[in-house]
C-alpha cells in the first residue's frame, strides 16, 4: 500500500500573513494521496487554493503546517532546501507559457539547462537529446533556434512540456495547461500530455476549470473551495453522482456544446450570495453563504471530509 502512494499530503495548511494578525488561509487542512500512475484532477475557482497547493507541492512555498511526502520522503520545505534528485523528479507546467518561458532565451537554451544541470546527458550528446525531446512533443528541429515570442501559444506550451519531461521526472503538475490557449490548439496539448503519460509512466496532478476536459483526463477528482477539499471521488462518481452542493453548482454551470451533454448535467442551481473573504471565513461550513441547502447545523459546525460511499468523500452535513 505504501509503495503505491507517490505523494502524500497530510493536513497541509498554508496561511499568508497580511499583517495585524490577519491571515489568508489559502490552504486550510488538505489531505490527499496521489498514487503512482494516476491522474488526479484538481478543480476549484479563484480563491480555492488549487494553485497554492500546486506551488506548495513544488516547493515554491513552505507549508505552515502539515506534512508532504514524496515516495515516503518528507519534502515539506522550499525547493532550495530539497535534494537535487527530488527537484529532478517533480516538475510543473504553468498556465501561461509566455510567462513560463524566458522571452530572451532560445528554445535551445531553455531545454539545455535541465539536461545539463541534472546531468541527463553529456555535452556531446546534448544536441541529439534536444532533437529527441522536441520530437516527443512533435515540434520540428528548427524550433531550437527560435525565441519564444516568435512561436504560437500552443507550441510554446509544448516547449514548456518538453522542458518538464527533460529530466525524466516521475510526477508532473499541470496547472491549467490549456486555459490560456485557443480552442484550436488545446486538443494537441492534451493529447500530447496523455501520450507522454503512458510512454514515460508519469503521474499527473491536473488542474483545470474545464470540466469537460477533466472528464476525459482525470482518474479521480478533488474539488476545492476556500482552502479545503469539498469532494473527492473517481471521475465517474464525480460526474454521475455528485454529493456536495458546490460540486452540483459547478457541474450545472458547465458550458457544453451538445444536447446530450446537457442532459448529463444536474439542473441548474442558482448561485446566489458572494464568496466570503478568505481572511474572514464563516463559522461552520465555509460554503454556507452560497449553499441552497444550508440548515442550522451548517452554521455551527464545520463538516469533516467523510467517506460517504466507498472511495467517495464529501464534506457536507447532508
Amino acid at each position: 500500500m505504501k509503495d503505491l502512494d507517490l505523494i502524500k499530503i497530510e493536513n497541509v495548511k498554508k496561511y499568508f500573513s497580511i499583517g495585524k494578525n490577519l491571515f489568508v488561509k489559502a490552504l486550510d487542512g488538505i489531505d490527499l494521496e496521489i498514487k503512482r500512475g494516476e491522474t488526479v484532477g484538481l478543480v476549484g475557482e479563484s480563491g480555492s487554493g488549487k494553485s497554492t497547493l500546486a506551488y506548495t507541492l513544488m516547493g515554491m512555498y513552505e507549508p505552515t503546517e502539515g506534512k508532504i511526502s514524496f515516495k515516503n520522503e518528507d519534502i515539506g520545505s522550499k525547493a532550495q532546501k530539497r535534494d537535487l534528485s527530488i527537484k529532478r523528479e517533480m516538475q510543473i507546467v504553468f498556465q501561461d507559457p509566455s510567462g513560463s518561458l524566458n522571452p530572451r532565451r532560445t528554445v535551445l537554451n531553455i531545454l539545455s539547462r535541465p539536461l545539463l544541470l541534472h546531468k541527463i546527458v553529456k555535452k556531446n550528446e546534448l544536441k541529439k537529446k534536444l532533437i529527441e525531446l522536441l520530437d516527443s512533443v512533435e515540434l520540428p528541429q528548427e524550433y531550437l533556434y527560435k525565441f519564444t515570442p516568435s512561436i504560437g501559444g500552443g507550441e510554446k506550451q509544448l516547449v514548456a512540456i518538453a522542458r518538464a519531461i527533460a529530466t525524466n521526472p516521475e510526477f508532473l503538475i499541470l496547472d491549467e495547461p490549456t486555459s490560456s490557449l485557443d480552442v484550436s490548439v488545446q486538443g494537441k496539448i492534451i493529447n500530447t500530455l496523455m501520450k507522454l503519460k503512458n510512454k514515460l509512466n508519469l503521474t499527473y496532478l491536473f488542474i483545470t476549470h474545464d470540466m469537460s476536459l477533466m472528464r476525459n483526463v482525470a482518474d479521480r477528482i478533488a474539488i476545492m473551495y476556500l482552502g479545503k477539499i469539498m469532494e473527492l471521488a473517481t471521475t465517474r462518481e464525480f460526474f454521475e453522482n455528485p454529493l456536495h452542493p458546490y460540486t452540483k453548482m459547478l457541474l450545472s454551470s458547465i458550458p457544453v456544446i451538445s444536447a446530450e451533454e446537457e442532459n448529463l448535467l444536474p439542473k441548474e442551481i442558482k448561485s446566489s450570495g458572494e464568496i466570503p473573504s478568505p481572511v474572514n471565513l464563516p463559522e461552520g461550513c465555509r460554503f454556507i453563504t452560497r449553499c441552497p441547502y444550508a440548515v442550522d447545523i451548517c452554521k455551527n459546525s464545520e463538516p469533516e471530509l467523510l467517506e460517504k460511499e466507498p472511495g467517495h468523500f464529501s464534506r457536507c452535513h447532508q
Binding site: I92, P114, H118
Partner: peptide, 11 residues
C-alpha cells in the same frame, strides 16, 4: 514563472 522554473530546476 520563467525565473521560478529555473529556481525549481535548481539553477
Amino acid at each position: 514563472h520563467y525565473v521560478i522554473s529555473s529556481e525549481l530546476l535548481g539553477e
